[in-house]
Design a protein around this nucleic acid. Structure first.
Lengths: 140, 140
DNA sequence: CCTTGACCCTGTAGCGCCTACAGACCTTAT
DNA sequence: ATAAGGTCTGTAGGCGCTACAGGGTCAAGG
């Protein structure tokens, strides 16, 4: 009786990983290429086999991306985690830094919102001869 | 006595346009290529010559980009303006649409901000054994 | 055993929105 | 006349993926 280790050790292939994670199948290969994911095991035929840890790693990567971390920020986070000797403070610092960026983006968008609202309001009241939006956009 | 029409009619070259507008010189050529800007006049030697209208057009394009309009949205705005027969209502509608997108983005970023704040707060109080950010990022 | 169909492999090209380069030509000042 | 700087063109690179093409592998059915 032979035992299928690939099954008994819960190794899955790329398509299955894509399905389970919701990550595009090509993106998984891309993340491996840019070294966000380690090269996984392979079977005899050269097919990638992903372990539970690989799956957790991909989840981590995807989560960080969803949270708006750039690839570079993510790389830093990962290198801290991979070093094993990360301190909670370092991680916290990076997170707070990222939070600062996000708050900046929110502030920028709100300024934008106000500007658009203002020029649109001019337009809506219909009192102007030419379209005030066009005029507003022409001036610097 | 000869009159230099290129000077008397205020035509400027690409470098000067870049300097005055703050737009990258290569970007100006790119905008022409994707037809956001019309092909400008040329002098004998083939150098581009930009008129006052060209300068206003670039200002319009840059302003829209700053305000977060996508190239496609901008193209629609421009085709309305170029048709000559744009109605203020159409422009207003597109602006309001864009405003909606921006508000959506703001909402998304705020959710993100809350999430990050929450997982960072766990970390800051130092009461946890492992880094809670890492843990939080691992779980889906 | 062989075939079929689904999966996976690799390399490469495309997207949007620029930005930067190389190698040639033009313009302007000295 | 020459040098320095601006401009011309086409093309390639960057990000973060995504999507092919042309092949090899795997699992199930006949």
């Amino acid at each position: 009786m032979t035992v299928n280790f690939t099954v008994s050790r819960h190794l899955i292939r790329r398509g299955e990983l894509a399905r389970r994670s919701g990550c595009n199948i090509e993106t998984i290969r891309y993340y491996e290429k840019i070294a966000l994911l380690p090269p996984p095991a392979r079977n005899e035929g050269g097919h990638r086999l992903y372990s539970k840890e690989d799956q957790a790693r991909l989840r981590f990567v995807m989560r960080c991306r969803e949270l708006g971390f750039s690839i570079d920020e993510l790389r830093s986070l990962l290198s801290l985690v991979d070093s094993g000797a990360y301190s909670c403070g370092e991680i916290h610092g990076m997170t707070m830094n990222h939070l600062k960026d996000i708050r900046q983006k929110i502030a920028d968008l709100r300024r934008l919102e106000r500007t658009l609202k203002t020029i649109a309001a001019d337009c809506a009241d219909g009192s102007k001869p030419d379209c005030p939006i066009i005029d507003a956009l022409q001036s610097d």
